[in-house]
């Protein structure tokens, strides 16, 4: 099967550089899948679960805000953070989710727009982490 080169780059370094069969990513206007020889494409990415298939094995990872670019049979993700599902500390993610939920209710009660967006983003990250961990068979 024709493959596409996948690169996931974060400020802390390159996380993935591999030839894969298919990539499924959480775009801001909906999830999309990319196969080999896809047309040039640019999309923003929201916090969520990115998955790709290689050698009949699907791997899941959590990605946060950024964007993806497809050109020359290469898909590059530039995201603020990326973690493999099986690397995720589930207990920590659960604690983070609880903390974010608390902050969110607090922010809503006091009507603080700034805290609200921050708490929402934190909650999204925690939820995405848990989802990625779950898909990878953890928790």
């Amino acid at each position: 099967m024709a493959q596409i080169h996948l690169e996931v780059v974060t400020p802390a370094g390159q996380v993935v550089s591999d030839d894969v069969d298919i990539v499924t990513a959480p775009g801001t206007s909906g999830e999309f899948g990319v196969l080999a020889h896809h047309a040039n494409f640019l999309s923003t990415i929201k916090t969520g679960v990115l998955s790709f298939k290689k050698d009949r094995q699907i791997k899941y990872m959590m990605v946060s805000k950024g964007f993806a670019e497809v050109s020359d049979n290469t898909i590059t993700f530039l995201v603020e953070s990326a973690e493999y599902g099986y690397d995720i500390d589930v207990d920590r993610a659960i604690r983070a989710r609880e903390r974010a939920e608390r902050r969110l209710t607090q922010a809503l009660a006091h009507d603080e727009a700034m805290n609200r967006t921050l708490a929402e983003a934190a909650l999204q990250r925690a939820v995405a982490r848990l989802a990625a961990a779950q898909c990878s068979g953890k928790a």
Binding site: G27, T28, S29, A39, N40, L42, S43, T44, F67
Partner: peptide
């Protein structure tokens, strides 16, 4: 040429 999703301005 690129396909933009959403529009370039939104990106």
């Amino acid at each position: 040429e690129y396909i933009y999703e959403p529009s370039p301005a939104e990106i």
